[in-house]
Write a protein that binds this DNA or RNA. Structure first.
Length: 570
RNA sequence: GCCCGUGUAGUUCAGUGGUAGAACGGCUCAUUCGUAAUGAGCAAGUCGCCGGUUCAAAUCCGGCCGCGGGCUCCA
């Protein structure tokens, strides 16, 4: 069912309860959102968690009192009279163009609202208020600070409980917590908020991803490049970053008198320098240069978030220089590559967005239309359903964004394909065409994983820390039952080490404890070694979260693991 | 950046003005064990930083820094 109406009504019930308990509160707005609802209130003292309980109790009363919800039409004058004590509502009223406005009334509570709503407050069955936070009135930091209460409601108790369970589960997946628990990465707030330290277990995963990424790119017609982390400010002045991107730049470094350098916030100007290092012919195009390029951007303190929003990160960046005629085919190739990578990591659900020309743009309308139609044709030829974000393109060109869904249906944006008319002009990129004339190539910026840091964070949450065998930092752990099994286990490790990442648990602990720890560390496979295994030369194999698989020979195990790794089985 | 909350041992957290605590983890010893925690002992802290109030501050007040939620969903 479509819960929007249901949630919207619940938000009105909440507002009614708040008004009863705190009559001095002024109403802001209270819509249904993607999952649940909120209402913004203007109140001097913030709400406390105890207030939430009181509000919930009052809401239960209102539901029980089962008020009919009536839609009432008023003209502006009447509306103003009704809202005389609600300054925020009056502000909204003043912006409505129609002479007639609608109110919804339930009991003593009346609110300016275009609806729709349920028929009565009694229809809301199960609800919960979830959190209190602040927000600016109309999202404007110069305006009043409002108190926002979030909540959720459902028709059945089961749905509510499932939702609360889902919320709990999302917490267990939190990459910041798992990153600490599994010793994958850390951030030292004293020495650099937003800067990531990759611990050995995180770093090995990154290495596997990087190797895979490079191999696939080389096989797909890309060349790998490396570029510096800093460059003279004149490069950034020419690219325009010092003006349109200045908020995100780390402060200047004056390395010698008058020689000012900047940390790079993007890789593209460097790739352009490689392009411009000599004259290019049309015969060379398309040129595809890829780099795992580490960039630094000054993000505001309040927006940093684990691995997902950081100040230093590594983009899986590439730039393609091509002609307008080659554009569509290049886009198709990129889309294929995007899908190949995302599938390899276990992402099967996508939503594709095409962003078109914004109000402020560079280049000609004609070139925008050509580029946009190349994007559309590419999507159509791939039979991809897409949604249009009108006017949401970057000022320098249209783009395709691909959002992936993780295994609990949350959406993440990683991949982006952007066409750029601006920067080739700025840097005067040229090639010589088949008639000997200078032409300007088109440039495509594209990233597939987005950034390694962010993608790693998403992977941790997607897998809940249970990495598939090909990515797991420690693929197998050998667990000897008693001291006398240690030497056999160490020898076995040496043999397995040729193929896999394997450790032995030589601690003086009971087998139960060793299994528990290996399970908690999410090691995909355990091999248990006791008297029986040594006597019969068989290995007892246990799978993480599954339990005993039985006894296997050494060769059978090698085969089993190898197949699982090659197929990138989830 | 702004609003609210928050900062105590490696980790998770208790501690409302009077000698700094628990569990897990770590170390040592004993135990040699068959599929999710063997037992005992020991070590471990500038209570985020700076300042103020007080005979006395982890605790109260102010500033700074960090972290968490939100500030994008608009009658």
């Amino acid at each position: 069912m479509d819960y929007k109406k249901y949630w919207h009504t619940t938000s009105h019930i909440m507002a009614q309860a708040v008004k009863r308990l705190f009559p001095e509160v002024k109403l802001g707005t209270g819509p249904a959102i993607e999952k649940g609802f909120y209402y913004d209130f203007y109140k001097k003292e913030p709400f406390t968690p105890e207030d939430l309980i009181k509000i919930e109790d009052e809401m239960k009363k209102i539901i029980k009192e089962n008020y009919k919800i009536e839609r009432i039409e008023k003209n502006k004058q009447q509306a103003k009279e009704i809202l005389k004590n609600e300054p925020f509502k009056i502000e909204i009223l003043d912006e409505i163009k129609d002479e007639k406005v609608t109110f919804y009334q339930q009991g003593e509570f009346i609110d300016l609202c275009e609806g729709p709503h349920l028929y009565s407050t009694g229809e809301v069955k199960f609800f919960k208020l979830l959190s209190i936070s602040s927000s600016y009135w109309r999202g404007d930091e110069n305006r009043e600070s409002m108190q926002r209460i979030y909540g959720i409601s459902f028709e059945t108790k089961d749905e509510l409980e499932n939702y609360l369970k889902y919320m709990e589960e999302s917490k267990e997946r939190d990459h910041r917590i798992l990153g600490k628990k599994l010793d994958l990465f850390s951030i030292n707030p004293d020495y650099g908020p937003g800067l990531i330290f990759w611990h050995p277990k995180g770093a090995i995963i990154r290495k596997i991803i990087e190797d895979f990424w490079k191999d696939v790119h080389l096989k797909n017609g890309y060349e790998i490049v490396y570029t510096p982390h800093i460059a003279n400010i004149s490069l950034w002045e020419r690219s325009g970053h010092t003006s349109f991107y200045s908020d995100y730049l780390f402060p200047k470094m004056e390395i010698e008198e008058g020689k000012i350098y900047l940390l790079k916030p993007m890789n593209c100007p460097f790739h352009i320098q490689i392009y411009n290092s000599r004259l290019r012919s049309y015969r060379e195009l398309p040129i595809r240069w890829a780099e795992l390029g580490t960039v630094y951007r000054y993000e505001k303190p309040g927006v940093l978030h684990g691995l997902l929003r950081v100040r230093g990160f590594t983009q899986d960046d590439a730039h393609i220089f091509c002609t307008l005629e080659q554009l569509e085919q290049e886009i198709c190739k990129i889309i294929d590559l995007v899908y190949f990578f995302l599938k390899s990591f276990g992402f099967e659900d996508y939503r594709v967005f095409l962003s078109t020309r914004p109000e402020k743009f560079v280049g000609t309308v004609e070139s925008w239309e050509k580029a946009t139609s190349s994007l559309v044709n590419a999507l159509k030829s791939k039979n991809i359903n897409y949604e249009i974000d009108p006017g949401e393109g970057v000022f320098y060109g249209p783009k395709i964004d691909i959002k992936i869904k993780d295994c609990i249906d949350r959406e993440w944006q990683c991949s982006t394909i952007q066409i750029d008319f601006n920067i080739p002009e700025k840097f005067d990129l040229k090639y010589i065409d088949d008639n000997g004339n200078f032409k300007t190539p088109i440039m495509i910026h594209r990233a597939i994983l987005g950034s390694l840091e962010r993608f790693f964070g998403i992977l941790i949450e997607h897998y809940k820390g249970n990495f598939p065998l090909w990515l797991a930092p420690e693929q197998v752990r050998i667990l000897p039952i008693a001291d006398r099994h240690n030497q056999f286990s160490i020898d076995l490790r040496e043999k397995l080490k040729e193929h896999f990442r394997v450790e032995v648990d030589l601690r003086n602990e009971k087998i139960n404890k060793k299994i528990k720890d290996a399970e908690e560390e999410k090691i995909p496979y355990m091999i248990i070694i006791g008297d029986r295994e040594i006597r019969e030369n068989k290995l007892s194999l246990r799978k993480h979260r599954k339990g005993m698989l039985g006894e296997f020979s050494f060769n059978e195990i090698v085969e089993l693991f190898k197949n699982e790794i090659i197929s990138k089985k989830i």
